[in-house]
Nucleic acid binder design. Structure first.
Length: 575
RNA sequence: CGGGGAGUAGCUCAGCCCGGUAGAGCACUACGUUCGGGACGUAGGGGUCGCAGGUUCAAAUCCUGUCUCCCCGACCA
Protein backbone atom coordinates (compact mmCIF):
# COMPACT_ATOMS: atom_id res chain seq x y z
CA UNK A 1 0.00 0.00 0.00
CA UNK A 2 1.16 3.49 -0.84
CA UNK A 3 1.02 5.97 1.99
CA UNK A 4 -0.54 8.59 -0.28
CA UNK A 5 -3.29 6.18 -1.30
CA UNK A 6 -4.35 5.14 2.17
CA UNK A 7 -5.31 7.31 5.13
CA UNK A 8 -2.81 7.67 7.95
CA UNK A 9 -3.38 11.04 9.59
CA UNK A 10 -0.42 11.32 11.96
CA UNK A 11 -0.18 14.29 14.28
CA UNK A 12 2.83 15.83 15.84
CA UNK A 13 1.33 16.98 19.10
CA UNK A 14 -0.10 14.87 21.88
CA UNK A 15 -3.86 15.11 22.14
CA UNK A 16 -4.77 17.10 25.26
CA UNK A 17 -7.04 14.43 26.73
CA UNK A 18 -4.87 11.34 26.33
CA UNK A 19 -3.21 10.21 29.54
CA UNK A 20 -1.68 6.85 28.74
CA UNK A 21 0.80 5.95 26.00
CA UNK A 22 -1.51 3.63 24.08
CA UNK A 23 -4.23 6.26 23.78
CA UNK A 24 -1.78 9.01 22.92
CA UNK A 25 0.02 6.93 20.34
CA UNK A 26 -3.12 5.58 18.74
CA UNK A 27 -4.29 9.11 18.07
CA UNK A 28 -0.89 10.44 17.03
CA UNK A 29 -0.06 7.51 14.76
CA UNK A 30 -3.35 7.90 12.93
CA UNK A 31 -5.11 4.80 14.26
CA UNK A 32 -7.93 6.29 16.24
CA UNK A 33 -10.23 9.32 16.34
CA UNK A 34 -12.86 10.13 18.96
CA UNK A 35 -16.45 10.80 18.02
CA UNK A 36 -17.94 11.08 21.51
CA UNK A 37 -16.78 10.21 24.98
CA UNK A 38 -15.55 6.62 24.87
CA UNK A 39 -16.68 6.21 21.25
CA UNK A 40 -14.12 5.98 18.46
CA UNK A 41 -13.54 5.55 14.76
CA UNK A 42 -11.01 2.83 14.00
CA UNK A 43 -8.93 4.30 11.17
CA UNK A 44 -7.45 2.08 8.43
CA UNK A 45 -4.24 1.26 10.25
CA UNK A 46 -6.10 0.16 13.38
CA UNK A 47 -8.59 -1.76 11.29
CA UNK A 48 -5.73 -3.84 9.91
CA UNK A 49 -4.46 -4.59 13.40
CA UNK A 50 -7.94 -5.55 14.56
CA UNK A 51 -8.36 -7.92 11.61
CA UNK A 52 -5.08 -9.59 12.50
CA UNK A 53 -6.00 -10.04 16.15
CA UNK A 54 -9.41 -11.37 15.13
CA UNK A 55 -7.77 -13.80 12.76
CA UNK A 56 -5.54 -15.16 15.49
CA UNK A 57 -8.56 -15.45 17.77
CA UNK A 58 -10.58 -17.30 15.14
CA UNK A 59 -7.74 -19.70 14.37
CA UNK A 60 -7.21 -20.61 18.00
CA UNK A 61 -10.93 -20.97 18.72
CA UNK A 62 -11.33 -23.16 15.68
CA UNK A 63 -8.66 -25.40 17.13
CA UNK A 64 -10.74 -26.04 20.23
CA UNK A 65 -13.88 -26.63 18.22
CA UNK A 66 -15.67 -23.36 18.91
CA UNK A 67 -18.10 -22.24 16.20
CA UNK A 68 -18.78 -18.66 15.19
CA UNK A 69 -22.21 -17.07 14.99
CA UNK A 70 -23.59 -13.54 15.27
CA UNK A 71 -26.25 -12.48 17.75
CA UNK A 72 -28.25 -9.24 17.73
CA UNK A 73 -26.88 -6.06 19.22
CA UNK A 74 -30.35 -4.88 20.17
CA UNK A 75 -31.86 -6.84 23.06
CA UNK A 76 -35.44 -6.66 24.30
CA UNK A 77 -35.75 -5.70 27.96
CA UNK A 78 -37.88 -8.74 28.92
CA UNK A 79 -34.96 -11.05 28.28
CA UNK A 80 -32.80 -9.16 30.76
CA UNK A 81 -35.63 -8.93 33.25
CA UNK A 82 -35.82 -12.72 33.32
CA UNK A 83 -32.37 -12.95 34.90
CA UNK A 84 -32.78 -9.80 36.96
CA UNK A 85 -29.87 -8.19 35.20
CA UNK A 86 -31.99 -5.40 33.70
CA UNK A 87 -31.62 -3.91 37.18
CA UNK A 88 -28.24 -5.38 38.18
CA UNK A 89 -26.46 -4.03 35.12
CA UNK A 90 -28.43 -0.85 35.60
CA UNK A 91 -27.04 2.31 34.10
CA UNK A 92 -24.17 0.37 32.52
CA UNK A 93 -26.59 -0.57 29.77
CA UNK A 94 -27.24 1.74 26.85
CA UNK A 95 -31.00 1.77 26.66
CA UNK A 96 -33.40 2.77 23.96
CA UNK A 97 -37.03 2.46 22.98
CA UNK A 98 -38.60 1.55 19.70
CA UNK A 99 -41.50 3.44 18.10
CA UNK A 100 -43.96 1.55 20.27
CA UNK A 101 -42.09 2.67 23.39
CA UNK A 102 -40.87 -0.86 24.00
CA UNK A 103 -37.64 -0.88 26.00
CA UNK A 104 -34.45 -2.31 24.53
CA UNK A 105 -30.77 -2.26 25.39
CA UNK A 106 -27.65 -2.39 23.30
CA UNK A 107 -25.96 -5.62 24.27
CA UNK A 108 -23.20 -5.26 26.87
CA UNK A 109 -22.77 -9.07 26.85
CA UNK A 110 -24.85 -11.95 25.57
CA UNK A 111 -25.56 -14.60 28.21
CA UNK A 112 -29.30 -13.96 28.00
CA UNK A 113 -29.47 -14.10 24.23
CA UNK A 114 -27.41 -17.25 23.89
CA UNK A 115 -29.32 -18.95 26.71
CA UNK A 116 -32.54 -18.08 24.94
CA UNK A 117 -31.19 -19.80 21.83
CA UNK A 118 -30.18 -22.81 23.89
CA UNK A 119 -33.53 -23.26 25.62
CA UNK A 120 -35.38 -23.02 22.35
CA UNK A 121 -33.09 -25.12 20.19
CA UNK A 122 -31.10 -27.55 22.34
CA UNK A 123 -33.37 -30.28 23.58
CA UNK A 124 -31.26 -33.33 24.16
CA UNK A 125 -28.02 -34.27 25.85
CA UNK A 126 -27.13 -35.71 22.46
CA UNK A 127 -26.75 -32.17 21.10
CA UNK A 128 -24.26 -31.27 23.83
CA UNK A 129 -21.72 -29.93 24.33
CA UNK A 130 -22.08 -26.79 22.24
CA UNK A 131 -19.40 -24.16 21.98
CA UNK A 132 -20.37 -20.92 20.23
CA UNK A 133 -18.75 -17.53 19.90
CA UNK A 134 -19.05 -14.22 18.13
CA UNK A 135 -16.91 -11.16 17.54
CA UNK A 136 -18.96 -8.06 17.83
CA UNK A 137 -19.26 -4.48 19.02
CA UNK A 138 -20.38 -4.27 22.64
CA UNK A 139 -21.91 -1.30 24.41
CA UNK A 140 -21.34 -0.39 28.02
CA UNK A 141 -22.15 3.05 29.36
CA UNK A 142 -19.13 3.12 31.67
CA UNK A 143 -19.09 5.41 34.71
CA UNK A 144 -15.86 6.87 33.49
CA UNK A 145 -14.63 5.88 30.07
CA UNK A 146 -10.94 6.63 29.70
CA UNK A 147 -7.60 5.60 28.29
CA UNK A 148 -9.00 5.55 24.76
CA UNK A 149 -9.97 2.12 23.62
CA UNK A 150 -8.94 0.52 26.93
CA UNK A 151 -12.16 1.54 28.63
CA UNK A 152 -14.49 2.65 25.87
CA UNK A 153 -18.26 2.68 25.80
CA UNK A 154 -18.31 0.95 22.44
CA UNK A 155 -15.69 -1.73 21.87
CA UNK A 156 -14.95 -4.97 20.10
CA UNK A 157 -15.22 -8.18 22.03
CA UNK A 158 -15.04 -11.85 21.29
CA UNK A 159 -17.59 -13.57 23.51
CA UNK A 160 -17.97 -17.32 23.65
CA UNK A 161 -20.52 -19.50 25.45
CA UNK A 162 -20.58 -23.21 26.01
CA UNK A 163 -23.36 -25.59 27.05
CA UNK A 164 -22.85 -28.91 28.77
CA UNK A 165 -24.69 -31.86 30.19
CA UNK A 166 -22.20 -32.44 32.98
CA UNK A 167 -19.40 -30.78 34.90
CA UNK A 168 -16.65 -32.91 33.37
CA UNK A 169 -17.56 -31.67 29.93
CA UNK A 170 -17.68 -28.06 31.11
CA UNK A 171 -14.31 -28.48 32.83
CA UNK A 172 -12.81 -29.76 29.63
CA UNK A 173 -14.06 -26.84 27.56
CA UNK A 174 -12.96 -24.42 30.27
CA UNK A 175 -9.46 -25.86 30.07
CA UNK A 176 -9.59 -25.66 26.27
CA UNK A 177 -10.37 -21.96 26.48
CA UNK A 178 -7.65 -21.45 29.05
CA UNK A 179 -5.20 -22.94 26.57
CA UNK A 180 -6.62 -21.12 23.55
CA UNK A 181 -6.43 -17.76 25.31
CA UNK A 182 -2.87 -18.41 26.34
CA UNK A 183 -1.92 -19.21 22.75
CA UNK A 184 -3.78 -16.15 21.46
CA UNK A 185 -1.95 -13.74 23.73
CA UNK A 186 1.35 -15.48 23.11
CA UNK A 187 0.87 -15.20 19.37
CA UNK A 188 0.02 -11.52 19.75
CA UNK A 189 3.43 -11.12 21.34
CA UNK A 190 2.10 -10.17 24.77
CA UNK A 191 3.46 -10.83 28.22
CA UNK A 192 0.48 -11.94 30.28
CA UNK A 193 -0.70 -13.88 33.33
CA UNK A 194 -3.80 -15.96 33.88
CA UNK A 195 -5.05 -15.13 37.37
CA UNK A 196 -7.83 -16.19 39.71
CA UNK A 197 -10.41 -13.44 39.76
CA UNK A 198 -13.68 -12.01 41.01
CA UNK A 199 -16.68 -12.75 38.87
CA UNK A 200 -18.47 -9.40 39.15
CA UNK A 201 -21.82 -8.98 37.41
CA UNK A 202 -21.43 -12.07 35.24
CA UNK A 203 -21.58 -14.43 38.19
CA UNK A 204 -20.54 -18.02 38.57
CA UNK A 205 -17.90 -19.78 40.60
CA UNK A 206 -14.56 -20.53 38.99
CA UNK A 207 -13.07 -17.89 36.78
CA UNK A 208 -9.76 -16.63 35.46
CA UNK A 209 -8.70 -13.29 34.14
CA UNK A 210 -6.02 -12.90 31.51
CA UNK A 211 -3.91 -9.91 32.35
CA UNK A 212 -1.41 -8.25 30.09
CA UNK A 213 1.28 -6.89 32.36
CA UNK A 214 1.66 -3.14 31.93
CA UNK A 215 2.49 -0.22 34.17
CA UNK A 216 -0.72 1.60 33.34
CA UNK A 217 -2.94 -1.39 33.93
CA UNK A 218 -6.17 -0.70 35.75
CA UNK A 219 -5.99 -3.91 37.76
CA UNK A 220 -3.56 -5.19 40.36
CA UNK A 221 -2.09 -8.67 40.10
CA UNK A 222 -0.48 -10.65 42.89
CA UNK A 223 1.73 -13.48 41.82
CA UNK A 224 4.08 -15.97 43.42
CA UNK A 225 7.28 -16.80 41.59
CA UNK A 226 7.83 -19.84 43.78
CA UNK A 227 4.61 -21.81 43.21
CA UNK A 228 2.89 -20.01 40.33
CA UNK A 229 -0.10 -18.78 42.34
CA UNK A 230 -1.57 -15.69 40.69
CA UNK A 231 -4.71 -13.73 41.52
CA UNK A 232 -6.25 -10.34 40.94
CA UNK A 233 -5.91 -7.92 43.84
CA UNK A 234 -9.65 -8.20 44.41
CA UNK A 235 -9.39 -11.92 44.81
CA UNK A 236 -5.94 -12.66 46.22
CA UNK A 237 -6.19 -14.60 49.46
CA UNK A 238 -4.46 -13.72 52.67
CA UNK A 239 -2.94 -16.38 54.86
CA UNK A 240 -5.48 -17.89 57.23
CA UNK A 241 -4.41 -18.21 60.82
CA UNK A 242 -5.47 -21.02 63.13
CA UNK A 243 -4.78 -19.91 66.69
CA UNK A 244 -6.53 -16.63 66.87
CA UNK A 245 -6.14 -13.93 69.53
CA UNK A 246 -3.57 -15.25 72.06
CA UNK A 247 -0.84 -12.65 71.88
CA UNK A 248 1.67 -14.37 74.19
CA UNK A 249 2.25 -11.34 76.36
CA UNK A 250 0.92 -9.86 79.58
CA UNK A 251 -2.08 -7.68 78.69
CA UNK A 252 -1.89 -4.12 79.94
CA UNK A 253 -4.72 -1.84 80.93
CA UNK A 254 -6.98 -0.28 78.36
CA UNK A 255 -6.10 3.40 78.46
CA UNK A 256 -7.71 6.43 76.85
CA UNK A 257 -5.33 8.81 75.13
CA UNK A 258 -6.19 12.22 73.74
CA UNK A 259 -5.76 12.45 69.99
CA UNK A 260 -7.59 15.66 69.11
CA UNK A 261 -8.17 16.11 65.41
CA UNK A 262 -6.09 13.04 64.55
CA UNK A 263 -8.43 10.89 62.52
CA UNK A 264 -6.18 8.79 60.34
CA UNK A 265 -3.96 5.90 61.33
CA UNK A 266 -0.93 7.80 60.05
CA UNK A 267 -1.67 10.84 62.16
CA UNK A 268 -2.30 8.91 65.35
CA UNK A 269 0.69 6.65 64.68
CA UNK A 270 2.92 9.68 64.44
CA UNK A 271 1.46 11.28 67.55
CA UNK A 272 1.85 8.15 69.67
CA UNK A 273 5.06 6.91 68.10
CA UNK A 274 3.54 3.51 67.34
CA UNK A 275 3.75 1.70 63.99
CA UNK A 276 0.62 1.30 61.88
CA UNK A 277 0.83 -2.46 62.42
CA UNK A 278 -0.03 -1.87 66.10
CA UNK A 279 -3.40 -0.38 65.18
CA UNK A 280 -6.86 -1.79 64.83
CA UNK A 281 -8.56 0.05 62.00
CA UNK A 282 -12.31 -0.07 62.43
CA UNK A 283 -14.36 0.45 59.30
CA UNK A 284 -18.12 0.66 59.37
CA UNK A 285 -20.16 -0.63 56.48
CA UNK A 286 -23.81 -1.01 55.72
CA UNK A 287 -24.84 -4.19 54.01
CA UNK A 288 -28.42 -4.62 52.93
CA UNK A 289 -29.38 -2.08 55.59
CA UNK A 290 -27.47 -3.75 58.44
CA UNK A 291 -24.33 -2.35 60.06
CA UNK A 292 -21.05 -4.26 59.94
CA UNK A 293 -17.79 -3.28 61.60
CA UNK A 294 -14.65 -4.57 59.95
CA UNK A 295 -11.43 -4.75 61.93
CA UNK A 296 -8.16 -4.76 60.03
CA UNK A 297 -4.57 -4.11 60.98
CA UNK A 298 -3.68 -0.42 60.68
CA UNK A 299 -1.47 -0.85 57.64
CA UNK A 300 -4.13 -2.83 55.78
CA UNK A 301 -6.98 -1.93 53.53
CA UNK A 302 -10.31 -3.63 53.48
CA UNK A 303 -11.05 -5.30 50.17
CA UNK A 304 -14.67 -4.52 49.49
CA UNK A 305 -14.77 -7.28 46.92
CA UNK A 306 -13.61 -9.87 49.44
CA UNK A 307 -15.81 -8.47 52.20
CA UNK A 308 -18.80 -8.46 49.93
CA UNK A 309 -18.18 -12.08 49.04
CA UNK A 310 -17.67 -13.05 52.67
CA UNK A 311 -20.91 -11.37 53.75
CA UNK A 312 -22.72 -12.66 50.69
CA UNK A 313 -24.04 -9.13 50.40
CA UNK A 314 -26.07 -7.88 47.49
CA UNK A 315 -25.19 -4.31 48.44
CA UNK A 316 -22.24 -3.06 50.43
CA UNK A 317 -21.47 0.55 51.26
CA UNK A 318 -19.25 2.45 53.62
CA UNK A 319 -21.39 3.91 56.37
CA UNK A 320 -21.99 7.63 55.99
CA UNK A 321 -21.00 10.17 58.64
CA UNK A 322 -24.47 10.26 60.17
CA UNK A 323 -24.51 6.48 60.62
CA UNK A 324 -20.98 6.49 62.01
CA UNK A 325 -21.99 9.08 64.61
CA UNK A 326 -25.08 7.11 65.54
CA UNK A 327 -23.18 3.84 65.96
CA UNK A 328 -20.04 5.09 67.67
CA UNK A 329 -21.23 8.23 69.39
CA UNK A 330 -18.20 9.97 67.93
CA UNK A 331 -17.17 11.90 64.90
CA UNK A 332 -15.73 10.02 61.94
CA UNK A 333 -12.13 9.10 62.67
CA UNK A 334 -12.51 7.75 66.19
CA UNK A 335 -14.40 4.53 65.65
CA UNK A 336 -13.23 1.52 67.67
CA UNK A 337 -14.33 -2.09 68.07
CA UNK A 338 -15.48 -2.04 71.70
CA UNK A 339 -18.79 -0.80 73.00
CA UNK A 340 -20.46 -0.78 69.60
CA UNK A 341 -24.22 -1.43 69.69
CA UNK A 342 -25.12 -5.10 69.78
CA UNK A 343 -26.68 -5.14 66.32
CA UNK A 344 -23.32 -4.38 64.72
CA UNK A 345 -21.79 -7.51 63.26
CA UNK A 346 -18.06 -7.50 63.92
CA UNK A 347 -15.75 -9.10 61.37
CA UNK A 348 -12.07 -9.34 62.25
CA UNK A 349 -9.49 -9.76 59.53
CA UNK A 350 -6.80 -12.41 59.90
CA UNK A 351 -4.18 -9.66 59.73
CA UNK A 352 -5.02 -8.98 63.40
CA UNK A 353 -4.65 -12.57 64.53
CA UNK A 354 -2.12 -13.02 67.30
CA UNK A 355 -1.73 -9.32 67.93
CA UNK A 356 -2.04 -7.57 71.27
CA UNK A 357 -1.35 -4.21 72.94
CA UNK A 358 -3.10 -2.46 70.10
CA UNK A 359 -4.20 1.10 69.44
CA UNK A 360 -7.85 1.56 68.49
CA UNK A 361 -10.43 4.30 68.18
CA UNK A 362 -12.19 5.08 71.48
CA UNK A 363 -15.65 5.74 70.07
CA UNK A 364 -15.28 9.17 71.64
CA UNK A 365 -14.39 12.23 69.61
CA UNK A 366 -10.75 13.19 70.09
CA UNK A 367 -9.70 9.95 71.80
CA UNK A 368 -8.06 6.64 70.98
CA UNK A 369 -7.20 3.79 73.35
CA UNK A 370 -3.99 1.87 73.90
CA UNK A 371 -3.49 -1.60 75.36
CA UNK A 372 -6.39 -2.92 73.34
CA UNK A 373 -6.74 -6.71 73.35
CA UNK A 374 -8.93 -8.63 70.97
CA UNK A 375 -10.68 -11.35 72.96
CA UNK A 376 -10.68 -9.25 76.11
CA UNK A 377 -11.97 -5.89 74.89
CA UNK A 378 -13.99 -7.15 71.98
CA UNK A 379 -15.14 -10.58 70.84
CA UNK A 380 -15.48 -10.56 67.06
CA UNK A 381 -18.48 -12.35 65.65
CA UNK A 382 -16.16 -13.99 63.18
CA UNK A 383 -12.67 -14.01 61.72
CA UNK A 384 -12.31 -13.71 57.96
CA UNK A 385 -9.96 -12.90 55.14
CA UNK A 386 -11.25 -9.51 54.06
CA UNK A 387 -8.19 -7.32 53.65
CA UNK A 388 -6.42 -6.48 50.47
CA UNK A 389 -3.27 -8.48 49.89
CA UNK A 390 -0.21 -6.48 48.88
CA UNK A 391 3.15 -7.17 47.33
CA UNK A 392 5.55 -8.69 49.87
CA UNK A 393 2.78 -10.55 51.70
CA UNK A 394 3.17 -14.30 52.04
CA UNK A 395 1.69 -16.50 49.33
CA UNK A 396 -1.45 -18.29 50.58
CA UNK A 397 -0.29 -21.50 48.91
CA UNK A 398 3.39 -21.75 49.66
CA UNK A 399 4.33 -18.87 51.94
CA UNK A 400 6.89 -17.26 49.63
CA UNK A 401 6.66 -13.52 49.08
CA UNK A 402 4.06 -12.33 46.60
CA UNK A 403 4.91 -9.88 43.88
CA UNK A 404 2.46 -7.15 42.91
CA UNK A 405 2.20 -5.83 39.38
CA UNK A 406 -0.28 -3.94 37.24
CA UNK A 407 -2.25 -5.58 34.50
CA UNK A 408 -4.77 -4.89 31.78
CA UNK A 409 -7.61 -7.38 31.77
CA UNK A 410 -7.84 -8.63 28.20
CA UNK A 411 -9.72 -11.87 28.73
CA UNK A 412 -11.97 -13.43 31.34
CA UNK A 413 -13.32 -16.96 31.40
CA UNK A 414 -16.09 -18.16 33.72
CA UNK A 415 -17.62 -21.39 34.87
CA UNK A 416 -21.20 -20.17 35.15
CA UNK A 417 -22.69 -23.41 36.39
CA UNK A 418 -26.47 -23.31 36.02
CA UNK A 419 -26.91 -19.67 36.97
CA UNK A 420 -28.43 -18.49 33.68
CA UNK A 421 -30.02 -21.73 32.60
CA UNK A 422 -31.90 -21.96 35.90
CA UNK A 423 -32.98 -18.32 35.83
CA UNK A 424 -34.22 -18.69 32.28
CA UNK A 425 -35.54 -22.21 32.59
CA UNK A 426 -33.17 -23.53 29.93
CA UNK A 427 -33.13 -27.31 30.14
CA UNK A 428 -32.35 -30.38 28.12
CA UNK A 429 -33.40 -33.99 28.51
CA UNK A 430 -30.75 -36.31 29.89
CA UNK A 431 -30.36 -40.00 29.14
CA UNK A 432 -33.11 -40.94 31.52
CA UNK A 433 -35.48 -38.39 29.98
CA UNK A 434 -35.30 -35.95 32.88
CA UNK A 435 -35.14 -32.21 32.26
CA UNK A 436 -31.95 -30.67 33.63
CA UNK A 437 -30.56 -27.15 33.38
CA UNK A 438 -27.57 -26.66 31.11
CA UNK A 439 -24.20 -26.13 32.66
CA UNK A 440 -22.62 -23.13 31.03
CA UNK A 441 -19.29 -21.47 30.56
CA UNK A 442 -18.66 -18.04 29.15
CA UNK A 443 -15.48 -16.63 27.72
CA UNK A 444 -14.77 -12.99 26.91
CA UNK A 445 -11.83 -11.47 25.12
CA UNK A 446 -11.45 -7.74 24.43
CA UNK A 447 -10.21 -7.32 20.87
CA UNK A 448 -9.70 -3.57 20.90
CA UNK A 449 -8.41 -3.69 24.43
CA UNK A 450 -5.86 -6.30 23.42
CA UNK A 451 -4.60 -3.90 20.76
CA UNK A 452 -4.28 -1.11 23.34
CA UNK A 453 -2.53 -3.49 25.72
CA UNK A 454 -0.05 -4.45 23.01
CA UNK A 455 0.88 -0.81 22.52
CA UNK A 456 0.97 -0.20 26.24
CA UNK A 457 3.45 -3.03 26.54
CA UNK A 458 5.48 -2.26 23.44
CA UNK A 459 6.36 1.35 22.70
CA UNK A 460 9.17 3.80 23.29
CA UNK A 461 9.46 7.57 23.49
CA UNK A 462 9.23 7.88 19.72
CA UNK A 463 6.21 5.72 19.08
CA UNK A 464 4.65 2.30 18.77
CA UNK A 465 6.76 -0.86 18.37
CA UNK A 466 4.40 -3.44 16.87
CA UNK A 467 5.00 -7.16 17.31
CA UNK A 468 5.15 -8.61 13.77
CA UNK A 469 2.11 -10.80 14.37
CA UNK A 470 -0.30 -7.89 14.75
CA UNK A 471 1.51 -5.05 12.98
CA UNK A 472 -0.66 -3.12 10.49
CA UNK A 473 2.10 -3.67 7.91
CA UNK A 474 5.18 -5.82 8.28
CA UNK A 475 7.65 -3.67 6.39
CA UNK A 476 7.77 -0.02 5.38
CA UNK A 477 9.81 1.11 2.39
CA UNK A 478 11.07 4.67 2.69
CA UNK A 479 12.45 6.51 -0.34
CA UNK A 480 14.19 9.49 1.20
CA UNK A 481 14.03 11.78 -1.78
CA UNK A 482 11.04 11.56 -4.08
CA UNK A 483 12.68 14.04 -6.49
CA UNK A 484 15.45 11.60 -7.28
CA UNK A 485 14.44 9.30 -10.10
CA UNK A 486 17.05 6.77 -9.03
CA UNK A 487 15.76 6.65 -5.46
CA UNK A 488 12.14 6.37 -6.54
CA UNK A 489 12.94 3.66 -9.03
CA UNK A 490 14.95 1.62 -6.53
CA UNK A 491 12.28 2.03 -3.87
CA UNK A 492 9.58 0.94 -6.28
CA UNK A 493 11.57 -2.13 -7.13
CA UNK A 494 12.04 -2.99 -3.47
CA UNK A 495 8.36 -2.34 -2.82
CA UNK A 496 7.40 -4.72 -5.62
CA UNK A 497 9.94 -7.24 -4.37
CA UNK A 498 8.53 -7.16 -0.85
CA UNK A 499 5.03 -7.71 -2.09
CA UNK A 500 6.13 -10.57 -4.29
CA UNK A 501 7.81 -12.04 -1.23
CA UNK A 502 4.41 -12.03 0.45
CA UNK A 503 5.19 -9.23 2.88
CA UNK A 504 2.56 -6.71 3.92
CA UNK A 505 4.29 -3.60 2.70
CA UNK A 506 3.75 0.12 3.13
CA UNK A 507 5.56 2.50 0.76
CA UNK A 508 6.02 6.01 2.12
CA UNK A 509 5.70 7.77 -1.23
CA UNK A 510 4.98 11.18 0.25
CA UNK A 511 7.15 13.99 -1.11
CA UNK A 512 8.16 14.92 2.44
CA UNK A 513 11.62 15.38 3.83
CA UNK A 514 13.59 12.49 5.27
CA UNK A 515 13.31 13.72 8.83
CA UNK A 516 9.55 13.76 8.94
CA UNK A 517 9.32 10.38 7.24
CA UNK A 518 11.63 8.89 9.85
CA UNK A 519 9.65 10.50 12.62
CA UNK A 520 6.38 9.13 11.27
CA UNK A 521 7.91 5.71 10.71
CA UNK A 522 8.99 5.59 14.34
CA UNK A 523 5.57 6.77 15.43
CA UNK A 524 3.59 4.27 13.38
CA UNK A 525 5.98 1.53 14.43
CA UNK A 526 6.07 -0.89 11.48
CA UNK A 527 8.53 -3.55 12.72
CA UNK A 528 10.86 -3.47 9.69
CA UNK A 529 11.92 -0.58 7.53
CA UNK A 530 13.86 -0.47 4.29
CA UNK A 531 15.42 2.94 3.73
CA UNK A 532 16.41 3.98 0.20
CA UNK A 533 18.56 7.09 -0.09
CA UNK A 534 20.84 8.62 -2.68
CA UNK A 535 24.03 8.09 -0.73
CA UNK A 536 23.39 4.46 -0.04
CA UNK A 537 22.26 3.86 -3.57
CA UNK A 538 25.57 5.15 -4.95
CA UNK A 539 27.21 2.35 -2.98
CA UNK A 540 24.53 -0.04 -4.24
CA UNK A 541 22.97 -0.36 -0.77
CA UNK A 542 19.63 -0.02 0.92
CA UNK A 543 19.25 -0.13 4.67
CA UNK A 544 17.10 -2.60 6.58
CA UNK A 545 16.25 -1.29 10.05
CA UNK A 546 14.49 -3.07 12.88
CA UNK A 547 12.12 -0.73 14.71
CA UNK A 548 12.54 -2.38 18.09
CA UNK A 549 16.31 -2.23 18.29
CA UNK A 550 17.15 0.41 15.70
CA UNK A 551 19.74 -1.99 14.31
CA UNK A 552 20.51 -1.37 10.63
CA UNK A 553 21.89 -3.67 7.93
CA UNK A 554 23.25 -2.14 4.73
CA UNK A 555 22.50 -4.55 1.90
CA UNK A 556 22.05 -4.69 -1.85
CA UNK A 557 18.37 -4.02 -2.65
CA UNK A 558 17.39 -7.59 -3.48
CA UNK A 559 19.25 -8.87 -0.45
CA UNK A 560 17.45 -6.29 1.64
CA UNK A 561 14.16 -7.81 0.58
CA UNK A 562 15.17 -11.37 1.35
CA UNK A 563 16.71 -10.32 4.65
CA UNK A 564 13.50 -8.56 5.67
CA UNK A 565 11.48 -11.53 4.50
CA UNK A 566 13.48 -13.94 6.57
CA UNK A 567 13.17 -11.85 9.71
CA UNK A 568 9.49 -11.17 9.23
CA UNK A 569 8.66 -14.82 8.65
CA UNK A 570 10.45 -15.67 11.82
CA UNK A 571 8.52 -12.88 13.58
CA UNK A 572 5.21 -14.28 12.32
CA UNK A 573 6.07 -17.60 13.89
CA UNK A 574 6.79 -15.75 17.10
CA UNK A 575 10.47 -16.76 17.29
C1' C B 1 -23.33 11.03 41.72
C1' G B 2 -19.73 14.74 44.36
C1' G B 3 -15.48 18.16 43.68
C1' G B 4 -12.15 20.78 40.40
C1' G B 5 -10.76 22.55 35.50
C1' A B 6 -11.64 23.80 30.39
C1' G B 7 -14.54 25.25 25.86
C1' U B 8 -10.91 30.96 21.12
C1' A B 9 -8.34 28.41 13.53
C1' G B 10 -7.81 21.29 11.78
C1' C B 11 -4.20 20.48 16.41
C1' U B 12 -1.61 22.59 20.96
C1' C B 13 -2.54 27.06 23.23
C1' A B 14 -2.13 32.75 24.42
C1' G B 15 -5.58 36.84 24.93
C1' C B 16 -10.11 37.38 29.65
C1' C B 17 -8.10 39.93 35.87
C1' C B 18 -7.88 45.79 33.59
C1' G B 19 -14.40 45.59 27.74
C1' G B 20 -12.49 49.08 22.19
C1' U B 21 -14.26 44.46 17.35
C1' A B 22 -8.87 38.17 17.50
C1' G B 23 -3.38 36.11 17.90
C1' A B 24 1.13 32.46 18.08
C1' G B 25 3.31 27.72 16.88
C1' C B 26 2.17 23.46 14.16
C1' A B 27 -0.98 21.85 10.01
C1' C B 28 -3.00 23.53 5.03
C1' U B 29 -2.32 26.27 -0.32
C1' A B 30 1.30 28.68 -3.93
C1' C B 31 6.28 30.00 -5.27
C1' G B 32 11.51 29.84 -4.25
C1' U B 33 15.75 27.92 -1.56
C1' U B 34 16.72 23.40 0.95
C1' C B 35 16.74 17.86 1.13
C1' G B 36 19.69 10.82 5.61
C1' G B 37 16.18 12.50 11.74
C1' G B 38 9.92 16.61 12.28
C1' A B 39 14.06 22.95 7.24
C1' C B 40 13.69 28.23 5.86
C1' G B 41 11.75 32.56 3.37
C1' U B 42 7.71 35.19 0.94
C1' A B 43 2.61 35.38 -0.02
C1' G B 44 -2.13 33.28 1.21
C1' G B 45 -6.76 30.60 2.96
C1' G B 46 -9.13 29.44 7.47
C1' G B 47 -12.42 31.53 13.58
C1' U B 48 -20.80 33.87 14.28
C1' C B 49 -14.33 33.14 20.54
C1' G B 50 -19.59 26.18 22.91
C1' C B 51 -24.84 27.99 23.04
C1' A B 52 -28.79 31.42 24.88
C1' G B 53 -29.98 35.62 27.42
C1' G B 54 -28.39 40.13 30.06
C1' U B 55 -25.27 44.70 31.27
C1' U B 56 -22.86 48.43 28.01
C1' C B 57 -22.08 53.35 23.02
C1' A B 58 -19.09 48.81 22.60
C1' A B 59 -18.47 41.90 25.10
C1' A B 60 -13.80 36.47 23.57
C1' U B 61 -13.29 39.67 27.99
C1' C B 62 -18.34 41.45 32.95
C1' C B 63 -23.21 38.89 34.84
C1' U B 64 -26.97 34.78 34.57
C1' G B 65 -28.46 30.33 32.63
C1' U B 66 -27.40 26.14 29.72
C1' C B 67 -24.71 22.35 27.00
C1' U B 68 -20.30 19.71 26.17
C1' C B 69 -15.49 17.95 27.27
C1' C B 70 -11.37 16.79 30.70
C1' C B 71 -9.30 15.51 35.51
C1' C B 72 -9.89 13.80 40.53
C1' G B 73 -12.94 11.44 43.96
C1' A B 74 -17.00 8.12 45.25
C1' C B 75 -15.77 8.21 51.48
C1' C B 76 -10.02 2.70 53.97
C1' A B 77 -12.03 6.79 59.51
Amino acid sequence: MRWTRTFIPTVREDPADAEVPSHRLMVRAGLLRPLARGVYTYLPLLQRVILKVERIVREELDRIGAVELTMPIIHPAELWQETGRWDVYGPLMMRLEDRHDRPFALGPTHEEVITDIARKEMRSYRQLPQNLYQIQTKFRDEIRPRFGVMRAREFLMKDGYSFHADQASLDETYRDYHGAYSRIFERCGLEFRAVEAESGAIGGAVNHEFMVLAENGESGVLSCDACGYAASDERAEGVRVDHLPGAGHEPGPLTDVETPGKTTVEEVAELLGRPATAFVKTLLFTTDGKPVAVLVRGDREVSEAKLSRHLNASRLEMADAVTVRALTGAEVGFAGPHGLPGEVRIVADYSLAGRGDLVAGANRTGFHVTGFEIGRDVEPDEWADVSRVAGGDPCPRCGARLRESRGIEVGHIFDLGAKYSTAMDATFLDESGRARPFLMGCYGLGITRTVAAAIEQSHDERGIVWPVAIAPYEVEVIPLNMDSAAVVEAAERIYAGCREAGLETLLDDRPDRAGSKFADADLVGIPWRIVVGEKGLQAGRAEVVERRTGRAEKLAPDQAVSFARERIESGRRGD
